[in-house]
């Protein structure tokens, strides 16, 4: 249990997980996972639904207490630190936050200052400056006096990120910040993440579904499946036809993004797969063993596994329904 005793003497990165076992209600989702978040980089966690990526992020953010092992922040077990102290070092944007009915953008972003405030220190010059800066960085300053529930999805997401920015932490964890956004807004949000990283050297960990965007924006990629890290490293190292097959159980061609020159994953799909008699496009920048193009029955097994996993994160699903249910007029 004591993560400190196993900590290496030289600590380079601020945040890491040490052999954590994570789960809900006694069901283990992630077991014996170790992972270090590279400082000053954008790290994207990818993987199929229910692979445990959000669970891992929740543990890193101190939202979930590991059943075994520990999460270490600045050399200390994160659960030994006071919540408020963690909140001064580590900002978080969880999935499906709730904007209370009628709250104004400026008031929501101001809540990001909470860990820096005290009973009689609730709105210092520093607080105001931080809120202004966050609004400007996210280009939401013109929306400051608008109610959050009247904004578009993309604007709303920017406002939530602004709240996390106003918290002024060097570490920022974002759980699927692009979900439910159209492609333009996804790029928009990720550009913002990129800017946060390059301007301030902030460390960002982001859970993403879109592999190609993950490859574009992340310096470091972590691919998870069934609660374990399958591969991690630079996107070029991690994303191969073989690894995508391994992780997602999907046949694809990996080529090069013509704009960013990062890996570009092109799914093949059943219709065009060799098994269905379709043609397989041969051009691939990364030759892999999957090139023998066999669609075997493993895929079926993988799908089954996924369904079982879906059960595992029942809690997540419940949560989402609850959040929608709990915000009666937000929609």
């Amino acid at each position: 249990m004591d993560a400190n005793s196993t900590a290496p003497p030289v600590q380079t990165n601020r945040l890491r997980a040490d052999g954590v076992r994570l789960g809900y209600d006694g069901r283990t989702v992630v077991d014996d996972l170790s992972f270090e978040v590279p400082d000053g980089r954008i790290t994207a966690i990818i993987g199929p639904n229910a692979c445990g990526k959000s669970t891992l992020l929740r543990a890193l953010a101190r939202l979930l207490r590991p059943d075994r092992g520990g999460v270490v922040l600045d050399g200390e077990n994160i659960h030994r630190l006071p919540t408020k102290e963690v909140a001064r070092r580590l900002g978080l944007l969880p999935q499906s936050p709730i904007s209370p009915e009628g709250i104004l953008v400026v008031d929501l972003v101001s809540r990001g200052r909470t860990p820096h405030q005290r009973l009689f220190q609730q709105w210092s010059d520093g607080d105001e400056a931080a809120v202004r800066e966050a609004l400007e960085a996210t280009h939401t300053i013109d929306l400051a006096d608008r109610p959050v529930d009247q904004l578009s999805g993309g604007q709303r997401q920017r406002v939530w990120i602004a709240m996390a920015i106003a918290q002024q932490t060097d570490l920022l964890l974002l759980d699927e910040p692009t979900t439910f956004l159209d492609i333009a807004h996804q790029v928009d949000v990720l550009d913002l993440v990129d800017q946060l990283n390059s301007d301030r050297g902030r460390t960002v960990v982001v859970v993403l579904h879109d592999l190609n965007l993950a490859c574009r924006y992340a310096h470091h990629l972590v691919a998870m499946r069934d609660g374990a890290i399958v591969a991690s490293g630079r996107p070029e190292e991690v994303i191969t036809e073989h690894s995508v097959r391994e992780v997602f159980g999907m046949d694809c061609v990996v080529t090069t993004d013509p704009v960013s020159h990062t890996p570009l994953v092109v799914p093949i799909g059943a219709r065009r797969s060799p098994a269905a008699g379709g043609d397989r496009p041969g051009s691939s920048s990364v030759p892999t063993s999957a090139d023998d193009g066999r669609v075997n029955h493993d895929d079926g097994d993988l799908v089954d596994g996924d369904l079982v996993d879906g059960d595992l994160v029942d809690g997540d699903v419940d949560d989402t329904t609850d959040d929608t249910a709990a915000a009666p007029v937000a929609e």
Partner: peptide
């Protein structure tokens, strides 16, 4: 209470001992 209205996770992220 005001922070908890933003969801438990957001409140925890803001340093509220939920």
């Amino acid at each position: 209470l005001d922070r908890l209205e933003l969801s438990d996770d957001v409140a925890a992220g803001l340093g509220v001992p939920v």
